[in-house]
Design a protein around this nucleic acid. Structure first.
Length: 671
RNA sequence: GCGCCCGUAGCUCAGUCGGAUAGAGCACUGGUUUCCUAAACCAGGGGUCAGAGGUUCGAAUCCUCUCGGGCGUACCA
């Protein structure tokens, strides 16, 4: 079933052509803002009148003469400078609703696209060795809903979770494991105490330096001592430790690892600029060469070593990556995000392709060396000094970085996944990166005109103070903590409002409401701007929130339950209906809105803007609430009751479909 | 400096690519429960769409400039 707006667009455009002889006329049909202008309005006559140099009102009259639309609308009215106002016929509305109700494929009679595409959606993409925090929430759920919507519309969607598992932090992972191993040697968790100390003396330069010196000294000593044959071979402790990793308790290792990873990062941050050095070794022409290196470069050295040498340290990294994904999967499941391990295709997936990517760009004379790094200088990008801005594809130390993996990924998606469209869902700060990525991929001939790339950006999630959401101690808010709090708060509301429900039911409602509220708050904001997150507002029953809609749904379900008590056979009344008896304004308003669902989905999909969909659903829930108050269902007379039951049923189906199928938010029978 | 995003009611935000009198919610004021969940509904006040020019039948929306905010700008992602 085609959206009404599409039918109107086609019919009016044809009439415009018939009236003027002009081809490709645009009818520009929109939903009217005010019922006094009908249900839809066509705005195309003004523009066309200019094109053919005639009076727009006269043209509109001519168009109406040529318009065959009496199967859908009342007689069109011409208003203002040349609007054509259209009001749907009651019978047409009724037929539409009946058709939606008759759909047995749970698609609410919404057609799949006639031009399906293979679409890659790149989203979520958390980093290895980190807990997901609120910064990952938006990409994860916005990407998920985009994938769901496009899939519903019939596109062939390939989800790609491009996890950050091969960049610089890669070396930090190994360094973290090294510290865990050394902590075992010392018989204490020094990383834990020092993590706290480092934070505490952040402001005190003298103390900080003293602490960092001690850390460096111990590091050197540990490194020197861990040798069987050559200095720093790690054969006594570190390598045996890595071999045993798989035998360790997963939960315990994960929590230790999170801590030590923070430690590695903080140490590196703290020592930068202190000119501390540690001994290191490098393989040069098959021989180890020993020299001192800046302490802050240790993790980078580890990255290079690991990207070059392939051994058990690689396996250790693989293991940590598995641990991370294991944890992420729990969050995805909690969020009802459809990602699975099958969708994981992270940076490391491309590791063997990276040298080839760099070589190819060199061969094509696109990549050149600059300040020791291998760079592409795509046209049109300049830095602060006005010089060409480099897109660095290989660092001066030889390591690859995210530009390289993203280039490999775009190449893979186009050439091997046969993507016709690629959507990247990341925060707005990465815009320049993606512009340069696309420019480079175009210059290399990988990205051609028949492939559409789109960077779907979003702003930062702010706390109620208007600053990026952080904990009191200044850290990123852990995503699972945020969800816990939302569920906790929701459960208090459930307890207060509906104390008679069973414990299991309360818990399940609290979960649906809490998680739904967090997700919905995000969706309902225009994704391009930063938005201020507030538990109170998200969980409020008033306004454009998940609970408000879940409540509308629960009320419909309640009517259905009460109907049974009253001996009303809802199913029978619904099937006995062949035409609706719509008389009240509230019924009409609701009915009209229900048939517009597909229009909302199309608009949301076209711009990858979930807030269009939430706005639609909120309107629907509001119109239902108005209807609910104005038009009693179960005590209605026999001629009205089936129609009202039908409106209830379709409202519930639409809300459930929008929330659950497209947004991944659960509905509840009671709340 | 340059680039991108943004500036709409006291607050938080919409505004479907130029359409008619700029919309919600919160907060504020008043009203509605012998009636299907009042976690709701109804009514009311509240605006120089940051400012100034321009484009045209018509601008919150497009162009130019100014002011104000955020982000990015060579080896993090």
């Amino acid at each position: 079933m085609k959206p009404v707006i599409e039918i109107l667009n086609t019919r009016i455009a044809d009439a415009m052509t018939a009236a003027t002889g002009e081809s490709d006329c645009l009818a520009i049909v929109k939903q009217s803002g005010d019922v006094k202008f009908g249900h839809y309005q066509a705005n195309g006559c003004m523009a066309l009148a200019k094109r053919v140099k005639t009076n727009p009102r006269e043209l509109a009259a001519k168009v109406v003469e040529n318009l065959k639309i009496d199967d859908i609308c009342e007689t069109p009215e011409i208003a203002g400078p040349g609007f054509i106002n259209l009001t749907l016929k009651n019978d047409f509305l009724s037929d539409r609703l009946m058709e939606i109700a008759a759909d047995d494929k749970e698609r609410l009679a919404i057609d799949k696209t006639s031009t399906p595409k293979k679409v890659v959606v790149d989203f979520s993409s958390p980093n290895i060795a980190k807990q997901m925090h609120v910064g990952h929430l938006r990409s994860t759920i916005i990407g998920d809903t985009i994938a769901r919507i496009l899939n519903f519309l019939g596109h062939d969607v390939i989800k790609q979770n491009h996890i950050g598992d091969w960049g610089t932090q890669f070396g930090r992972v190994i360094l973290g494991l090294w510290h865990l191993c050394m902590a075992q040697k010392h018989g204490n968790t020094y990383y834990r105490t020092e993590l706290k100390e480092l934070k505490d003396c952040k402001e005190d330069d003298g103390k900080l330096k003293e602490l960092c010196l001690a850390i460096r000294d111990r590091h050197e000593k540990d490194w020197e001592e861990d040798r069987l044959d050559k200095r720093g071979d790690g054969e006594v402790l570190f390598h045996p430790y890595i071999k045993k990793l798989k035998g360790l308790d997963k939960g315990e290792l994960w929590s230790q690892f999170l801590e030590v990873y923070q430690y590695v990062n903080l140490v590196e941050e703290s020592i930068t600029g202190m000119n501390l050095e540690v001994p290191s070794r490098k393989m040069i022409d098959g021989e180890y060469v020993y020299s001192n290196m800046p302490y802050e470069s240790v993790s980078r050295l580890a990255t290079v070593m690991l990207q070059n040498e392939d051994d058990q340290e690689n396996k250790a990294w693989e293991y940590i990556s598995e641990l991370t994904l294991n944890y992420c999967q729990k969050i995805y499941d909690r969020l009802s995000v459809l990602l699975t391990e099958d969708d994981v295709c992270g940076e490391s997936f491309y590791k063997d392709r990276l040298p080839g990517i760099v070589e190819e760009l060199k061969d094509k004379d696109l990549a050149t060396e600059s300040e020791g790094a291998m760079c592409v200088f795509p046209e049109g990008f300049t830095n602060k000094e006005g010089n060409p801005l480099p897109f660095i594809i290989q660092k001066s130390d030889g390591a690859f970085l995210y530009a390289t993996t993203d280039l490999a990924a775009i190449n893979y998606r186009i050439k091997e996944l046969d993507a016709e469209k690629i959507i990247y869902v990341t925060d707005a700060r990465q815009q320049l990166h993606f512009q340069m990525l696309f420019a480079t991929a175009k210059a290399a001939g990988w990205l051609t005109d028949d492939v559409e790339v789109s960077h779907v950006t979003f702003g930062t999630m702010m706390g109620e103070d208007g600053k990026p959401l952080k904990t009191r101690s200044g850290e990123n808010v852990n995503l699972s903590d945020l969800l816990d709090e939302a569920v906790e708060r929701a459960s208090k509301v459930v307890e207060a409002k509906n104390p008679d429900l069973g414990d299991a039911e309360k818990a399940s409602i609290a979960n649906a409401v809490g998680i739904g509220a967090v997700k919905y708050a995000d969706f309902s904001n225009n994704r391009t701007t930063d938005f201020i997150f507030s538990f109170d507002k998200s969980l409020a029953m008033e306004g454009n929130t998940a609970p408000y809609m879940q409540y509308a749904y629960a009320r419909v379900k309640s009517i259905e339950r009460k109907a049974v008590d009253k001996g009303i056979d809802v199913a029978a009344e619904l099937t006995s209906l062949d035409t609706l008896n719509i008389t009240e304004p509230a019924e009409m308003d609701l009915a009209l809105h229900i048939i517009r669902y597909s229009e909302a989905i199309n608009v949301a999909a076209g711009d990858c803007r979930p807030n269009y969909l939430t706005a639609y659903l909120y309107d629907l829930a509001q119109k239902f609430s108005t209807f609910y108050n104005a038009c009693p269902v179960l005590i209605a007379t026999e001629d009205k009751r089936p129609t009202r039951l039908m409106l209830c049923d379709l409202t519930a189906k639409t809300i459930a479909h929008g929330l659950t199928n497209l947004l991944g938010i659960e509905v509840v029978e009671k709340m």
